[in-house]
């Protein structure tokens, strides 16, 4: 009754911006800026305050029906509770990994899980080849099967250092430390300026930051 009158219904996961700020690289103001962004994304097709796969695709590709292996994997990893949608808490926690100030360790683990297509705890050679083929399919690049095999083989030699036919997390970390560019997708510079991108409520957020 009275309680609900005082408290407008909020998006699931939005109840604790200070908790989210404490547990991610974002400040409370930035969490609130992300909420503005989240509201747009999560109501773009279905007005329910949750990001559905099609809304995610619409944001990335301006086309709700465009499928992409890697976008699918990112969506699945953002969907921490694995219920088919991304709520605000999942959105903030997952984007936090892409923050320029996030731990490299977290970025490495996220990328590893992304590439572990079948979630076996290892990146397998077949998965690597499947990902290369998926990229070729979406690009103009044409390579013969022999060329693809050669690229995958060479990478595999560098990566599977213990020669057991699969890349485990430790091997992945070694490979990344030798080739830091492999993590370039794991940092989104936009996240440094998120309050500038969504300034409409920054003033009120700053007041609340001081109170907290």
């Amino acid at each position: 009754g009275c309680f609900s009158l005082k408290r407008p219904k909020q998006t699931p996961g939005y109840e604790k911006p200070s908790v989210l700020a404490a547990e991610t690289p974002f400040t409370v103001s930035e969490v609130k800026a992300l909420y503005e962004l989240f509201k747009k994304l999560s109501n773009s097709i279905i007005n329910d305050g949750l990001i559905h796969k099609e809304e995610f695709q619409l944001a990335l590709f301006r086309n709700r029906y465009r499928r992409n292996l890697f976008a699918d994997r990112i969506f699945d990893l953002f969907d921490i509770k694995r219920n088919g949608v991304i709520d605000f808490e999942e959105f903030v926690r997952s984007l936090g990994v892409f923050h320029p100030n996030a731990l490299v360790e977290d970025k490495m683990k996220f990328a590893f899980r992304l590439y572990d297509l079948r979630q076996t705890g290892f990146i397998e050679r077949e998965e690597l080849k499947e990902m290369v083929l998926a990229l070729l399919h979406e690009s103009e690049l044409v390579l013969s099967d022999d060329e693809v095999e050669m690229i995958v083989d060479n990478t595999w030699k560098d990566a599977d250092t213990n020669g057991d036919g699969k890349i485990d997390l430790e091997e992945w970390k070694e490979l990344v430390s030798k080739n830091p560019s492999l993590l370039k997708n794991m940092t989104l510079p936009y996240l440094k300026d998120i309050t500038m991108a969504f300034p409409s409520f920054v003033l009120s957020s700053e007041v609340e930051d001081t109170e907290i």
């Binding site: 962004l37 747009k40 994304l41 773009s44 944001a59 990335l60 590709f61 301006r62 992409n68 292996l69 890697f70 976008a71 699918d72 994997r73 990112i74 892409f98 590439y115 690597l128 080849k129 990902m131 290369v132 998926a134 990229l135 979406e138 690009s139 060329e147 050669m150 690229i151 995958v152 060479n154 990478t155 595999w156 560098d158 490979l175 080739n179 560019s181 492999l182 370039k184 997708n185 989104l188 936009y190 998120i194 991108a197």
Partner: peptide, 24 residues
């Protein structure tokens, strides 16, 4: 051929999350 398979993959449009931040 020194192309790294993981480098090739990283060019996928699926990794470009900047679309999330663009004005709709």
């Amino acid at each position: 051929c020194n192309l790294n398979a993981f480098d090739i993959i990283s060019y996928s449009a699926g990794f470009d999350l900047s679309g999330l931040f663009e004005e709709k």
